[in-house]
Amino acid sequence: MSDGTLPAVLITAFAERPLQGNGAAVVALKQPAPAAWMQAVAGLLRQSETAFLLPLSRLEPGTEPAGEWALRWFTPRCEVPLCGHATLASALALGHWGLLARGASIRLHSRSGPLLVSLSESAAGRAQLVLPSAGLEPSPLPAELDRLLGVTPVCGWRSALGYWVALLPPEFDLAGLDGHSLAQELRGEVRQGLVLMQALAASGHSPTVQGFPADYQLRFLAPGLGISEDPVTGSAHALVAPWWCDQLRRERVVGWQPSPQGGGMVCERLSSGMIRLLGSGQLLWDGRLRAGFEAGEAEDWSCCLPGPG
């Protein structure tokens, strides 16, 4: 039996100020943990996602522990293949633990492949990560959305992530939406992830992220994943940022999420087709997790091993 004492932090990611952004717990493992144990921990911590980091050397002998890490994410209900805010939080946690220096970059290996993260050299609490963008496929939206929203979306899409995306007219009060109530009314596949987005008027009154005014805003509902509303969603911004880049004819756009907690990020489209997200985070608490598991219970973590080449 392990002693059950593991470093753990809670970081609010994509937060421009304290008590803003999206909370993510980050736990540093000493050995591969079983999925059932990680799911139980995530269920008790009740954050949108809890991230579990494991030195890659525990999976691939000869890999330096400080060099690369395996990373998995769990909502209170299930494991997910990609999570932006908990990846940002993981980078900041590694910096807090002295395992990632300012200005340095490392790869975190996940079910979605290797994700490059780095800490800002000039500003504490800032980091960036590179996420894949699944691409949007035009698609009719479920007819129920017109009734639930009280407005007809301008257009809609689906994505390989399983998210539905709806572009709403500018007059819709997205910031005033009761996301929790709407999430409870969703039915069918749309419960796995619904992005509601709209342009922000260039009026000078837009929220700012790292000093840049936001170009668009979105809300993200995912009751099928155990999250009525995710406060700030990196994977959703990585998904829609290329569309906004095309609309605005720029390679950098700023997204805002007007959930009750609020937060945002700067999104840069890279030549590879990946999206770089720049954001800030706030350390909320720092402690030790006391919950053991039998070493023999650990499942196969090969999903996080680097591929050939």
Rank of each mutant, 00 (worst) to 15 (best):
V26Q: 08
C267R: 06
P55V: 01
D246L: 06
G296Y: 02
L167G: 07
R250Y: 03
S57M: 08
E268C: 12
P138M: 12
V266Q: 06
R126L: 11
L100Q: 01
L278P: 00
T75G: 05
C245F: 13
A8R: 07
L10D: 00
K30R: 10
C155E: 14
L305W: 11
R147Y: 11
A123N: 09
S48V: 12
F293H: 02
G23T: 06
P140I: 12
A33T: 03
R158W: 15
W256P: 05
T12N: 13
M274R: 13
L177P: 01
G62H: 15
D246M: 01
Q247P: 02
C155N: 13
P81H: 05
T87R: 06
A24G: 10
A124D: 10
W37Y: 12
R249S: 15
A127D: 09
P18N: 06
S206P: 00
Q184T: 08
A89C: 06
S235W: 06
E185L: 12
L136N: 06
L53E: 11
G113E: 03
Q210E: 15
V195N: 00
H180L: 01
E64M: 13
F293S: 01
A201N: 02
H180P: 00
P138C: 11
A295R: 13
G43W: 10
L44Y: 04
A104G: 02
G113N: 10
L167E: 12
V26T: 09
L100F: 05
L45R: 11
L196Y: 01
L94C: 04
D146F: 06
V190R: 07
A123H: 11
S139P: 00
G4I: 03
L149E: 07
A101V: 07
L182W: 04
L116S: 07
Q257G: 04
P34T: 11
A15F: 11
A24D: 04
L221D: 07
G273S: 08
G135S: 05
T50Y: 03
L131N: 03
